[in-house]
Amino acid sequence: MAAPDRVLVPTLGRPREDEALAYALETFPQAEITLLAVVTPLDAPLSEGGVLERSEERTAQARQSATELLESVADSAAADRVRIETAEGRPGTVVPRYASDEGIDHVVMYGSGTGSAGFLRRFLGHGIAATVVERTAEPVTVLE
C-alpha cells in the first residue's frame, strides 16, 4: 500500500486530538494534512450546550481552536503541510463526506470518549469514530 498523499485529521474540540495530529504528521511525513474543525450543530447530542452562539462565531472559534492545536503540535516546517478547514454538521456524516469529496486518502482521529459515557458509546459501537469507520471508504486510523 502506497503512502497517502492527503490525510484528514478531524477535530471536535476534545481532549487528546493533538495526539492524532502528531501521529499523522509523524507517520505520513510527505502527506498534505487537512485539520478539519467540525462544528457540531447545537441541537446535536455532542453540542457544547450553554449559551446559544451564532454559527459564524462557533465556526470562528473552531478554526481558532484548530490553529492553537496545530501550533501546540507542529514545528513551522511541519505546519506548512497542514491546512485548516471547517465544516458544520454531525461528525459521523461530515467527516466521511469531506474525505470523499476532497480526495482524502486516509483519516486519522482520536476515538476515545472520556468517562463512562465515552466508554459505553465505544463498547456499544455508537461512538463517532465507529460511525466514521463504517461510513468512510478510505482507510481510517483510530487512536485510543
Rank of each mutant, 00 (worst) to 15 (best):
V132C: 13
A22C: 08
D18L: 00
L35M: 07
L36N: 04
E138H: 11
L36Y: 08
E144P: 14
L12F: 00
L12I: 01
L35P: 05
T114W: 08
F119R: 15
R81S: 04
L25W: 08
E134K: 15
T141H: 14
R16V: 01
P10F: 07
V107H: 12
L46Y: 12
V108K: 15
V133A: 14
P4H: 10
A44S: 15
Q61W: 05
S65T: 04
T67V: 07
D18N: 12
R83G: 04
P41Q: 12
G118I: 06
P41S: 11
V51G: 07
L42G: 13
P15T: 02
L124T: 10
P139H: 11
A130S: 15
G50P: 08
V73Q: 05
E48V: 14
A62Y: 05
T114D: 10
I128P: 06
D5S: 15
P4D: 04
G89D: 07
F123H: 09
T136G: 11
T131G: 09
P4C: 03
D105C: 11
V9T: 06
E85A: 14
R83C: 04
R97N: 09
A74L: 09
R6D: 07
V94D: 06
M1D: 06
V38H: 07
V51L: 13
I33N: 05
R81N: 01
A129H: 10
S55P: 01
L36W: 10
G113E: 08
P29N: 04
A137Q: 11
R135V: 00
E138P: 02
T141M: 10
A37R: 03
P4R: 08
Y23S: 06
G89A: 08
E19H: 13
S76V: 01
D18H: 14
L25R: 02
P15A: 15
I33R: 03
P45M: 11
P41D: 04
G92E: 10
V7C: 08
P91L: 07
G111P: 12
M1T: 04
L12E: 01
G13R: 03
A2Y: 10
L8E: 04
S47Q: 08
R14I: 00
T11C: 06
D80H: 10
E71W: 03
R63G: 03
P15C: 00
L52K: 03
G103Y: 08
L69P: 01
V9W: 06
D101H: 12
R122D: 15
E102L: 08
R90G: 01
L12A: 04
R16G: 00
A137H: 08
T131R: 14
G49M: 11
A44T: 00
E26N: 10
V142E: 09
F123V: 05
A60D: 15
G118L: 13
V82D: 00
A79N: 06
S112L: 14
R121D: 12
A22P: 05
V108I: 09
T136V: 05
V39F: 05
L35W: 12
A137G: 10
S55F: 05
S76M: 06
L12P: 02
T27N: 13
A66K: 00
P96Y: 13
V142L: 14
M109P: 00
A44V: 00
V7T: 02
